[in-house]
Computed example of a mutant assay.
Amino acid sequence: MANTNADESLFNIAVAGSASGSPEIEVSSSVSGALSDGGTDSIAGVITPGTGVAP
């Protein structure tokens, strides 16, 4: 946030929040299924950008 008052300090703004309910985004693999929060997945080969499939 810009401050146009030259003799004042920058603004310090603390932001916090929480959420409840179902996640808005679910990530899954056609091979291994849904990924849990913090999960990882390995993909063998090369994926062509924009297609999601190996060439």
Score class of each variant (00 low, 15 high):
G45I: 00
A6T: 10
P49H: 01
P55C: 10
A54L: 08
P55L: 06
S20K: 14
D37N: 13
N12S: 14
S9N: 15
G50T: 05
M1R: 09
A19H: 11
F11K: 12
L35V: 07
V27C: 03
T4V: 08
A2S: 11
G17V: 08
V46N: 11
V53T: 14
E8L: 12
A14M: 08
G38I: 00
G38V: 00
N3I: 08
G50I: 01
S28M: 02
I43E: 04
N3S: 09
P49K: 09
V27L: 13
G21P: 00
A34I: 07
A6H: 03
N5M: 05
F11A: 14
L10M: 12
S28H: 02
S9G: 14
G38N: 03
G17E: 11
N5S: 12
G17N: 12
E26M: 05
P55W: 02
S32W: 01
M1Y: 05
S28K: 09
A2W: 02
S18Y: 07
S29Q: 09
I13E: 13
I47L: 13
S29P: 00
A44S: 14
I25E: 06
G45R: 06
S36I: 04
D41W: 01
A34E: 10
I25L: 15
L35G: 01
G52M: 07
A14D: 10
A2Y: 01
M1H: 09
A14K: 12
V31C: 06
S22H: 13
D7Y: 05
V31R: 12
T40Q: 13
D37P: 02
I47Y: 01
S18C: 15
I13P: 00
S30M: 13
V31A: 14
G17K: 08
V53K: 10
A54Y: 02
P49M: 04
N3C: 06
D41M: 01
A34M: 10
S20V: 14
G38P: 00
S9Y: 04
N5C: 04
A34S: 12
S22C: 07
G38M: 01
I25D: 06
G45Q: 03
E26P: 00
P23Q: 09
G33I: 07
S32P: 00
S22M: 15
G52D: 04
L35Q: 07
T40C: 04
V53F: 02
L10Y: 07
V15A: 15
G52L: 05
N12L: 15
L10W: 03
T51I: 10
G45S: 05
A54V: 07
P23D: 10
A16L: 13
A14T: 14
T48R: 09
M1N: 12
N5P: 00
A19V: 15
A14R: 06
S29N: 14
T48H: 03
D7H: 06
G45P: 00
A14H: 09
